[in-house]
Design a protein around this nucleic acid. Sequence first.
DNA 1: ATTCATACAACTTCGGTTGTATTGGCGGCA
DNA 2: TGCCGCCAATACAACCGAAGTTGTATGAAT
Lengths: 234, 234
Amino acid sequence: MTAMASKGSRSGGRISADQVKDILIVDDHPLMCDALSLTLKISFGLKAVRTARSLAAAVDQIKAQGAPDAVILDLNLPDARGAEGIVTLRRQLPDVPITMISADMDAAMISAAMAAGAQGYISKSLGREALVDSLRRMWDGEFVTPEGYEPDQADADDEARADLARRFATLTPQQMKILRLICQGKANKEISYELSIAEATVKTHITAIMSKINARRRTQAVLLANSVRLFEAG
Amino acid sequence: MTAMASKGSRSGGRISADQVKDILIVDDHPLMCDALSLTLKISFGLKAVRTARSLAAAVDQIKAQGAPDAVILDLNLPDARGAEGIVTLRRQLPDVPITMISADMDAAMISAAMAAGAQGYISKSLGREALVDSLRRMWDGEFVTPEGYEPDQADADDEARADLARRFATLTPQQMKILRLICQGKANKEISYELSIAEATVKTHITAIMSKINARRRTQAVLLANSVRLFEAG
DNA sequence: ATTCATACAACTTCGGTTGTATTGGCGGCA
DNA sequence: TGCCGCCAATACAACCGAAGTTGTATGAAT
């Protein structure tokens, strides 16, 4: 599968693929990590590529070793399915291109990922040349989506979703955990138990969450999270 | 597009397409209604076909004129998107084969419809012969789904969804309205206003709903409704 | 020094339960 | 046919527990 692109680049971001020297791959599948990093080393002449097995590991590593020049992120991580991964990393890396990689070619998921701030979305089964080409274009500032994907009837709808994703990106780690549990239908007391904090604290976080995403009832919070596919099944 | 089928028929239902003489088409698009009823008249030698423009109209007509031998139901009605239509009609017509017809070939939507109790699911763009063939097979008791659709990793998962759909089918009309509003994130007070009843009454219904679908918190009710795609966007 | 994430308690509002009343449809039975 | 009793659906109020708000405090990061 090849890829098509629409133009446009992130605000203050980098502008050239040549400047990309430090890449972080986040994927829990070791084989995929190896294959990807090998391809990248060869095709872009890099000596080393960083990898992380989970979203939490990625976050920690970025704190410890600094921001990479680009990220390649698996859609289905053990600790983050759906758009949560993008949103979380965007928080730490406002200007770094994040590429989603997944076997799931569902159009709704793709547009959710793009709205969440991904620089592009590519298939796991993409051939080596197409992969390299897609990545290079992304690092040059293009938004790259799989061929055959049309940004739906984007317009105001997609605009709103991107805005919403930006709001979710302002959630702190603890708030994200709490929101995830809310989206599983749990009560405040259950959440407080799972996180080992007081119910009062849970409530404080929830108030903060709802203020950030402009929700008034927790059911609305659930609907908003689902509308950007923040958390997928589970 | 042609169609493939899996065997199996509804419990006490009819067993032969020859006995299908009275068909109800529920679709708000006049052209589609005409085209369908014409095809049916010709292909099955029927003199008349009943039609309804909305779910509410269909329900009323069945009350007034009795149960049809088969129903063909559009997925996107003005007053019912998603699985709600099936579930509502199933309540009135426990043994009548209901065929979903839609332009949306999303696998998740198909399995949601089948789990909700549809006899089959066909594309709006299906050719005349394939359409007739699919309908005949459905009326002979087969479950007919579009070619290329595999019932996912059905098993226990689909079993549970079908059970859940059966539970939703026990909701009264008023309860269904209330659940829909809940799934839009509305508060009890807002719901009471929209339906012109007391908030206390809304609460009673909600308790009944949650007991029927085995939910304890309203967020869980929302998640369950979404898991069977009871209401689609809107 | 200031800002932010986290934490908790006191208070208010909302959601959910229970008990009860009224209505309309339906089957039996005279 | 008409009457009766029954059940399902709808309706409401009073109570209690859960959700959400506000004020405040502490340690960590910048």
